[in-house]
Computed example of a mutant assay.
Amino acid sequence: MSQRRGFHRKLGPREPGPPRPREWEVLLLLRQGLEDEAIAERLGITPSTVRGHIYRLRERLGIASRAELLQRIPWEQCPSELQILKAGDRDHPKPGR
């Protein structure tokens, strides 16, 4: 069964807006310069899931590259519970869900 472009089977239409909680986690680690494999290990997900989060967020926001994504994200909207990741603490245990 194929999905319509821009539509999530559980969450409905993908409209521009701030990142979802897991997307924030991925973005904050990407911002620290971590590769997909390191992000995946840190979050307990697969590298392809990391790439999927980044791809869907870029597509939803109409952004062409990861570098542009990191520049255009509204960092001030980052949830306060992710402040440790925001600070760049690479040794902190993986965030809970």
Rank of each mutant, 00 (worst) to 15 (best):
I63Y: 00
H8A: 13
H53W: 04
A38G: 05
V26W: 13
Q71E: 12
L82V: 03
R20W: 15
R4G: 09
Y55V: 14
Q3K: 15
R5Q: 08
P16C: 00
S65I: 02
G96S: 06
F7E: 10
V26F: 10
L70R: 06
P47Y: 02
P21I: 15
Q3H: 14
I73T: 15
Q71G: 07
P13L: 06
R31C: 01
P19K: 10
A40R: 04
E76A: 15
P79R: 07
E25N: 08
D91E: 11
G33Y: 06
G6W: 00
S80C: 02
I63Q: 00
R5W: 04
G52S: 13
L57G: 08
R9L: 14
I39G: 00
Q71T: 06
G96T: 00
S65W: 02
R56T: 12
V50P: 05
H92F: 14
L34D: 04
E76S: 15
R90A: 07
R56C: 04
A67R: 12
A40D: 01
E35Q: 06
M1A: 11
R42G: 15
A40P: 01
G62Q: 01
Y55N: 08
V50Y: 03
L30S: 14
I73S: 00
C78W: 10
L70S: 03
E23P: 12
D89W: 12
D89L: 15
R14C: 05
R14N: 07
D91N: 09
E76M: 13
E76Q: 13
L82N: 05
L27Y: 01
R9S: 10
V26G: 12
S2C: 03
L27I: 09
L82Q: 04
E25G: 10
D36E: 09
I63E: 00
E68M: 11
K94T: 11
H8V: 13
G17D: 11
L29I: 14
P74L: 03
P93D: 04
E76W: 13
Q3I: 15
A87Q: 10
W75G: 14
P74I: 09
L61A: 03
I73M: 12
R51I: 04
E23D: 12
R58G: 00
R66E: 09
K94F: 13
R14H: 05
A64V: 03
P93N: 07
C78D: 15
P93K: 07
E35M: 08
E23N: 10
I54A: 00
